[in-house]
């Protein structure tokens, strides 16, 4: 059946670098069909024209780091029929969630000349921690292909085909030689969700975990292997503390190496 009407899309930004929103602009050849199928009613990166809500589909980028944003996301939710979060910031708190492991009050005092101007929360949290989310699209940045799939699925009123399997399966489908097994390079692919197309192993680098934990990650088994391959405990802690540091499975992984007593 041909589709009816032209749903209205809004794109929202919270604490983030804009990279995921730009993925939408980066859809090049597909951008015109997107614009034909949906009305881009609110997208500051693309146009200053703003159409008032409510919206049929909201794409939300960024994490919640201030009390004001915590309030604004509830407004966005109230105006959106479907709300999809995009990127590691929105789905896991992003790199800025490293603050969750530290004393933010101390940063404020030490870093800023006028700490009283800084209004910030002690944590950076995922949108899901504040309002109900209909779908989470992972990645730092997200994949263009998956973003188009999410929009197409929305138009067709079906569940997006976005897999929660490991990066390893993409790596193998692509025909990459495993850098962990063949080069002895530590790689997070076995515990990371697919979606990037296993880009890093294709360029002889271990996976950095940009898409966050896969559906059943077993970091407890992978960590001793990473150590065997020469990563020290600090290295393991750091590799799990990047864009998805606060994703529960990665957080547990980095905490687990921290808690181990240091060998004499």
């Amino acid at each position: 059946m041909p589709r009816k009407g032209r749903p209205r899309l809004a794109v929202w930004k919270f604490a983030s670098c804009d990279g995921c929103q730009l993925t939408l602009l980066d859809c090049e050849d597909d951008l015109l069909p997107v614009a034909a199928a949906i009305e881009i009613a609110n997208f500051r990166e693309a146009s200053r024209a703003v159409v008032e809500g409510p919206y049929d589909l909201s794409l939300v980028e960024g994490s919640i780091t201030t009390a004001e944003d915590a309030r604004r996301i509830r407004e966005v939710r109230a105006q959106s029929r479907t709300l999809v979060t995009i990127g590691a910031c929105a789905t896991a708190g992003g790199i800025q969630a490293l603050r969750n492991f530290q004393d933010v009050e101390e940063f404020r005092r030490v870093v800023y000349a006028r700490p009283e101007y800084i209004a910030t929360l002690a944590t950076s949290t995922a949108i899901r921690d504040h309002v109900p989310v209909d779908f989470e699209l992972r990645g730092c940045p997200i994949s263009k292909h998956q973003l188009l799939e999410v929009i197409t699925a929305f138009l067709d009123e079906r569940v997006p085909e976005v897999s929660t399997e490991s990066v390893c399966i993409e790596c193998k489908r692509r025909g990459n030689v495993c850098v962990l097994v063949a080069h002895g390079t530590p790689c997070l692919g076995p515990v990371t969700q697919a979606g990037c197309g296993a880009i890093c192993p294709a360029f002889h680098r271990g996976c950095y975990g940009c898409f966050g934990p896969m559906d059943t990650p077993n970091a407890t088994s992978l960590i001793p292997r990473l150590e065997e391959l020469g990563m020290d405990r600090g290295g393991v802690e750091r590799v799990f503390r990047t864009f998805n540091a606060a994703a529960p499975a990665f957080r547990a992984a980095s905490d687990s190496v921290k808690e181990k007593p240091v060998a004499p």
């Binding site: 069909p33 197409t152 399966i169 077993n218």
Partner: peptide, 26 residues
């Protein structure tokens, strides 16, 4: 690790899935 590597490299593992890839225009 449930990483699937064993099944990907196995010459006899045959499991597959299918996916519909629609154009945005429908």
């Amino acid at each position: 690790l449930s990483c699937t590597n064993c099944t990907m490299v196995c010459p006899t593992c045959f499991c597959h899935t299918t996916e519909e890839v629609p154009e945005l225009s429908g």
